[in-house]
Amino acid sequence: MDRLRDKIVPVTTILAVLVVVWYGFAILMNTPFQRDLDRRAGETPGFAEFIGKTLSQPKPTLPAPHQVAQNFFENTFMRKITSNRSLVYHGWVTLSSTLLGFAFGTALGILIAVGIVHVTALDRSLMPWIIVSQTIPIIALAPMVILLLGPFNTPAIVTKALISTYLSFFPVAVGMVKGLRSPEIMHLDLMHTYNASPSQTFWKLRVPASVPFLFTSMKVAIAASLVGAIVAELPTGAVAGIGAKLLIGAYHSQSIDIWAALIAGSVVALILVGMVGFAGRQVEKSMGGRPA
């Protein structure tokens, strides 16, 4: 009941408003081309007929929601998943390098954070560079990575994953530095009175204290990973993946395909973030978290 009132109603309301606005703009934006078509064909359709036509163009400037939905549905559920028209197939290609990049990024981020927290020299020298690294636009970096890795014959999935890594290690590193430093002075004093070794303090205090920070930053990291994987597909000339689908759609002005691919990307992002959130809640529960 509360969930209905607090979440479902407000979110659906916004969705409904968006769909209405979208239809409005679809009509508006497809009107000039439709007028042009009608003029050449010498037709003078009535108002309702004209509206209908603006919403059913094969390559509209802005596809109507139902066109995108239909395309998305057909290409997701009606095709064999091995077909290169299947969004599940393209989604999987992107997903696999996202997950690989996310795994690399999380591992790298944790490693950097552990180093920063334990080695003063790294704390002073590394952090500014990590921040600078994120100011470089990924779209500029991706082609360079591909060029650099060219001679090594790296599989495409690894190349793409490395670009995802580049984006996803950052939130994990920053979050984990904060998390590993989150224990209260009193808890650290307590470990000192027990004459605990640095590794005991690390495993029994710093690591458990950092877990909530880890999951929060992993949520950001996995979304960044997906962006990285999609961006990486653009300059690699990839033939498969959501990024490739977007690019091919753009070449051929297949606006409906582009939008459907976009939706597919969003669905993948939702699933990924949802999975990390779910895992986070399970871990929190197993660590005695207070039910919210």
Binding site: H187, L190, L205, G288
Partner: peptide, 13 residues
């Protein structure tokens, strides 16, 4: 020695 702080300082996890 055993030390008891002002707050319980138990590990919440």
């Amino acid at each position: 020695y055993g030390y008891v702080f002002q707050a319980a300082a138990l590990f919440p996890w």
